[in-house]
Write a protein that binds this DNA or RNA. Structure first.
Lengths: 175, 175
DNA sequence: GCAACCTGTATCGGGCTGCTATATGGCCCC
DNA sequence: GGGGCCATATAGCAGCCCGATACAGGTTGC
């Protein structure tokens, strides 16, 4: 799965500009992928060259004009073939947080505590964003939303349990 | 957080070869990072050049000889400074599975069902690997293990709930 | 007997991220 | 009122990283 396929998929749900595609992965989809502008714009250019999408320039008042892309029938076909060509592979994860925690023995307890506290706040916020995003309509969107919420909840629960047990230990040591 | 820092951290837990570093991220750590050989070997070469690690060749009978790397005092200092220089940023996730599910409306129900079933099996297996890995000793390792297990459990629960409700709907439709 | 797989190191192409540039307008604060 | 910062919008580039490949010998399995 490359960024071209990802863009094609988003455009299958409705036309959008490169900027708008990126924005969709900041709100309620940011737990599944976060493509950068540096990969989205070249991907759209290539898709246009290959006839998978068509592009029309929309002039806007008081804003820069934007290029709105629409998926073509050829694009829709290619998208289905690409997605169904194989079962999705395992998620690629790079968690700086978990790496930091893995080496917690050589770091200061205050730093570790701050990292955990920040992470709890982060997942609480993400959970709230997912919950408030009613979105409706599309079953796929609902699934992704529900998945994100389930994982967020589990992460917060685990982090809070660990934090409480750490605090208890400190209280005991102090006493 | 780059691969150099990651390697330095692993070496802070004990000396290892490039191959062994990779292996550690296949078993119980594969939910946090999966660095490739193509990034590990250049990283180790650079760390050696910079005096962060030292390298000795171990000849082995009936096996290729290997280069075993050890962290130096300078490396230990640099690792702490690097890790404590900022709180860890958000996880970078690329989930082909969630992307596929997002576009489930335009894919065949059989394919979606197969993808969900496969994913349940995957997380069940990962959960089992994490559980069986007693590891002990290091608090960081315990934390990462517990986190992985919590997330796995939540994912499986959610996926199974969705799958059951889909089956119920099919039963209703058939009746 | 030979195919398939494991240990082990290393390189290379290409994909992607993060940063920067560029242009324009709105908002806040001093 | 002007300086700084943020949002919209597109685009290019350096550098990091992944996946594939090469190479070499050993072991397991049929």
């Amino acid at each position: 799965m490359n960024i071209s396929t990802l863009c094609l998929g988003i455009l299958a749900l409705g036309e959008a500009s490169g900027y708008e595609i990126r924005k969709r992965f900041e709100g309620p989809f940011r737990h599944m992928h976060e493509p950068s502008f540096g990969s989205i714009y070249p991907a759209l250019a290539k898709l246009t060259r290959d006839g998978m999408v068509s592009c029309t320039v929309h002039s806007q008042e008081k804003r820069p004009s934007k290029k709105v892309y629409s998926i073509t029938p050829a694009g829709r076909l290619a998208l289905r073939q690409e997605l169904e060509s194989a079962l999705p592979g395992p998620d690629r994860i790079r968690s700086d947080f978990l790496v930091t925690m893995l080496f917690s023995d050589i770091l200061s307890p205050d730093f570790i505590d701050a990292a955990v506290t920040e992470r709890i706040a982060f997942y609480n916020e993400l959970g709230a964003v997912l919950q408030s995003n009613e979105c409706g309509g599309n079953a796929g969107r609902e699934f992704v939303r529900g998945y994100g919420m389930a994982v967020c909840r589990a992460a917060v629960e685990y982090l809070e349990t660990v934090q409480r047990s750490t605090q208890d230990r400190e209280t005991l040591t102090a006493a």
